[in-house]
Design a protein around this nucleic acid. Structure first.
Length: 490
RNA sequence: GGCUCCGUCGCCAAGUGGUAAGGCAGAGGUCUGCAAAAUCUCCAUCCCCGGUUCGAAUCCGGGCGGAGCCUCCA
């Protein structure tokens, strides 16, 4: 089955056919670097990280471009507040962005261009638009003339008359049409600026993406992504600029991810429910954050709440516990054990395990349906646990089946950026999180476990159970097994 | 007002014409000294009302409820 993607431009799912067979050019709008990234940025970047990974998994040669917009009104304003240069500010937050994305386990794009490193291309593009009559200069500013681009608003499917009714021209702007937008802004005092045919100035928002994408991917490429909120005006304007200049279709498939809500409310600074990635990673494992993002479809809104994150933590724990048990069973099993056939009772889980990859692909081929893909992976976990529950001593054939199951799970998990940690280590780390809140130290727990072990050996179950209940009251769950007793936070 | 979109089990969430994935929570069984984990079994007819169809959660119309965009925004 072939990959199908939902294209915002057509409003429906389409079969994905790259311009050049086997190769994909993909551009995703990065961030304007003037502050720390919030969890909405995390979602967008995780979503397109998955797109990138899945295309690579599907054997495409992908060129992934994600830009930094490092010249902008907000950067200038923030830099002035702090009394530093725009460049210092943007460099600081580019570093922060890189750290955040690395923490979230994102694969590095092929190219991460900066707007300020493409001023020459931007100026050339603006000149071209003026030359073609699509743009005009006015007092050092250059504006795009939306009236010259008949298919303007084709992406956002809005109505020009009504948009115009609501639009206003800010004082000092010399627009012919209120919907016209700036390609180049004349420099005000104390602003970063570059020399141009229209005097010193700087690029407007939107033009940098047109310039960088065409520089790195050509005038037509396959996928352009970003958050829904970028559809208008940002992406609409990119289309107008790029197609206006080249006369060729800009992008074949437009992909947009849904929003992040906080406790069912829109995330916004005014509501005070704004979380940076750094804030969240203080409380939650990055892999939990990623897992949470992938349990819903990328186009749907997701609700960021403690309860939902907690559920994701439990879900991810289920995977790691199964993987940890699998490691133990596989290491313990005897390679020389006599070959045995798979018992009839395990035919179904064995079959389910065998189908994992095919099901995963079918789900992901359907517009990157990670929620369904994870559902299939949970099925595989149950199949693994079932086999382990029934056959603690793996014979040759089952060993091979489970070994392949483990490999499949890890390989497909990697396509989603999951299960990359050593299972035992992840579980230990997870167990220790929150330990301080419980007011306990590991050594104390270990001592109590030892005391309980002795009590149990003496069949003093009253004492044994008391220890367990006391710890349970503090949120510590003891887990007895043949290998001894471990613990975790409930 | 215009344009998008959503309303599926207690909660989260897939499914968009062929008879409701999965996770969490819950009930019961197995395992266990007892538990936990694991496993097995059970647990929804899809906001409401019409219509199209052999057949609809899925399509159409009308309600009701919710969200987003239209200004910077992932």
């Amino acid at each position: 089955m072939a990959l199908r993607v939902y294209n915002t431009l057509s409003g429906k799912k389409e079969e994905f056919q790259p311009l050049v067979p086997g190769k994909v050019g993909m551009y995703v709008c990065g961030v304007t670097v003037y502050d720390y990234c919030h969890i909405g940025h995390a979602r967008a970047n995780i979503v397109f990280d998955i797109v990138y990974r899945y295309l690579q998994y599907s054997n495409y040669d992908v060129t992934y471009v994600r830009n930094y917009t490092d010249v902008d009104d907000k950067i200038i304003a923030r830099a002035n507040e702090r009394g530093i240069s725009s460049q210092e500010l943007s460099e600081e937050f580019i570093r922060a962005f890189d750290e955040d994305m690395a923490a979230l386990g994102l694969r590095k794009p092929t190219h991460e261009p900066k707007a300020t490193a493409h001023i020459a291309q931007i100026i050339a593009l603006v000149e071209q638009l003026i030359h073609k009559g699509m743009a005009y200069e006015a007092a050092g500013d250059v504006y795009y003339s939306v009236d010259k681009f008949p298919s303007y608003l084709k992406l956002s499917k809005r109505n020009m008359e009504e948009m115009q009714a609501g639009a206003r021209i800010a004082s000092g702007e010399l627009k012919r049409n209120p919907m016209d937008f700036a390609l180049w802004k004349t420099a005000k005092p104390d602003e970063p600026s570059w020399e141009s045919p229209w005097g010193a100035g700087r690029p407007g928002w939107h033009i940098e993406c047109s310039a960088m994408s065409s520089s790195l991917l050509g005038s037509t490429f396959d996928i352009h992504g970003g958050g829904r909120d970028l559809i208008f005006p940002h992406h609409e304007n990119e289309i107008a600029q790029s197609e206006g200049a080249s006369g060729k279709p800009f992008v074949k498939y437009w992909l947009h991810n849904g929003f992040v809500n906080i406790n069912q409310e829109k995330m916004s600074k005014s509501l005070g429910n704004f979380f940076t990635i750094r804030d969240i990673l203080k409380s939650y494992d990055p892999e939990v954050v990623r897992f949470f993002n992938l349990t819903a479809h990328y186009r749907s809104p997701i609700d960021f709440s403690d309860q939902n994150l907690e559920e994701s933590r439990l879900g991810l724990t289920r995977f790691y516990e199964a993987l940890a048990q699998l490691e133990i069973a596989l290491s313990r099993s005897d390679a020389d054990a006599e070959q045995g056939s798979v018992p009839e009772s395990l035919a179904e889980p064995v079959e389910r395990l065998a189908q994992l990859e095919e099901r995963f692909r079918t789900a992901m081929d359907d517009d990157f349906n990670t929620a369904q893909a994870i559902g299939h992976m949970f099925d595989a976990v149950r199949a693994i646990n079932r086999i382990l529950a029934e056959e603690s001593n793996l014979h040759g054939q089952l060993q091979g089946i489970l070994g392949k199951g483990r490999d499949d799970l890890l390989r497909l998990g990697e396509v989603l950026g999951l299960f990359g940690s050593d299972p035992a280590a992840w579980l230990t780390r997870s167990a220790h999180e929150g330990l301080a809140d419980a007011g306990l130290r590991e050594a104390e727990i270990a001592a109590l476990i030892a005391e309980r072990r002795d009590a149990r050996a003496n069949r003093d179950f009253a004492r044994s159970d008391q220890i367990r209940d006391d710890l349970a009251a503090k949120g510590i769950q003891l887990l007895d097994s043949a290998e001894g007793t471990t613990w975790k936070m409930k």
